[in-house]
């Protein structure tokens, strides 16, 4: 294992300072010499696989619990600190009752043991499970820019069909991010220079020609929390995750739905798709088709067709289009049928 220094950050300032690569360093934060670690459930993997070889690990677990470790819920919405563990949010009574899609995405992710450890700040930054990314001896544009993409013509059953490029088809693996993007969450970020807040939908970057750039974060920037606005759609919300086995598997296709209905008519709808795209994926085209219309299977199917209209498949992932559509149809109809 690559030797590394381990340090504990006692404050936000100390953390971002330690993470600051200094002026002039243009590498994306995933390639920085210093890496933040909280739950460590992914970082320890990357280090063992030599996917990431940091010189310094900055442990942020001791940062102010009041700012980082809490969930605040009021009539305006939620604020979820970045050090809240997945399991804590999953069990939170307000999230269960008023934001079920968040509860679902957490409950259906990983295993309870992992969820007890993993922090929500790190969760959305989980890197792809692309097998060619995780095995350091394969060419991979994300791991080694310019080396080529092994997945394009390789074994790509689990790869993305939306947001892909000729340089990368790696799937964004997470579930929680689909709830955040569906609910128009915002991300609080602390950096060496400043604090800022951005829309969650602005956080991730499609691969394009630079798949190594995964987010809009600058080196040294730290996610401190999420704000999820309240709304009439959050209670009727749901996540459907399709996979080969019942648990402990990343989505082959998933759909996060938040729905505001007037009778059968869709007043407002938010749709995010997981397992099929290179980034957390908001299906705006599908949403637009639904608004103002009475929701039934035919309309749901039209929305699903719209959501996947731009899909680009490879040899082994063609099924993700029909299964992705069916997952979305199922999610829409099951969300409609919810008793709220």
């Amino acid at each position: 294992m690559h030797p590394f220094a381990y340090q504990r950050a006692s404050s936000e300032q100390a953390a971002v300072e330690a993470g600051n690569p200094g002026p002039g360093v243009r590498r994306p934060p995933t390639e920085a010499a210093a890496q933040f670690v909280a739950g460590g459930t992914n970082m320890s993997d990357y280090m063992r696989l030599n996917v990431t070889r940091p010189d310094v690990l900055i442990d942020i677990n001791e940062l102010s619990p009041s700012a980082y470790g809490h969930i605040e819920a009021d009539s305006a919405g939620l604020r979820i600190g970045a050090l809240v563990r997945m399991a804590e949010a999953e069990d939170h009574p307000v999230i269960r009752s008023d934001y079920p899609v968040i509860h679902d995405t957490l409950k259906l992710a990983a295993t309870r043991q992992i969820r007890n450890m993993a922090s929500l700040g790190g969760n959305v930054l989980q890197r792809t499970r692309c097998e060619y990314f995780r095995e350091a001896s394969f060419p991979c544009n994300k791991r080694q820019p310019g080396s080529g993409c092994s997945a394009l013509d390789g074994f790509n059953r689990r790869h993305a069909v939306l947001g892909v490029s000729d340089a990368c088809i790696a799937t964004y693996p997470g579930d929680f991010a689909q709830a955040l993007i569906a609910l128009d969450a915002r991300v609080e970020i602390m950096g060496p220079q400043r604090r800022r807040t951005i829309a969650f939908s602005e956080l991730h970057r499609q691969p394009g020609g630079t798949p190594n750039v995964e987010t809009g974060l600058a080196p040294g920037e730290l996610i401190t929390g999420y704000v999820v606005p309240a709304g009439p759609h959050t209670r009727r919300s749901r996540y459907v995750k399709t996979r080969d086995r019942e648990s402990y598997q990343f989505a082959l296709a998933s759909a996060a739905i938040a729905l505001d209905l007037d009778g059968a008519t869709v007043k407002d709808v938010r749709i995010a798709l997981g397992g099929v795209a290179t980034v957390p994926w908001r299906a705006h085209e599908a949403e637009q088709l639904l608004v103002g219309q009475p929701l039934d299977e035919t309309l749901a199917r039209r929305a699903a067709d719209a959501a996947f209209a731009q899909a680009r498949t490879r040899e082994h992932n063609g099924y993700k289009v029909p299964i992705g559509k069916e997952t979305l149809v199922r999610a829409l109809l099951e969300t409609q049928a919810m008793d709220v």
Binding site: E131, F138, R245, E246, Y248, Q249, F250
Partner: peptide
Amino acid sequence: ARYVNRDLAEYLMPVNAD
């Protein structure tokens, strides 16, 4: 001729829930 899914996350077998 290389194996691709060389770990217990991607080499699937049933979990308790199955």
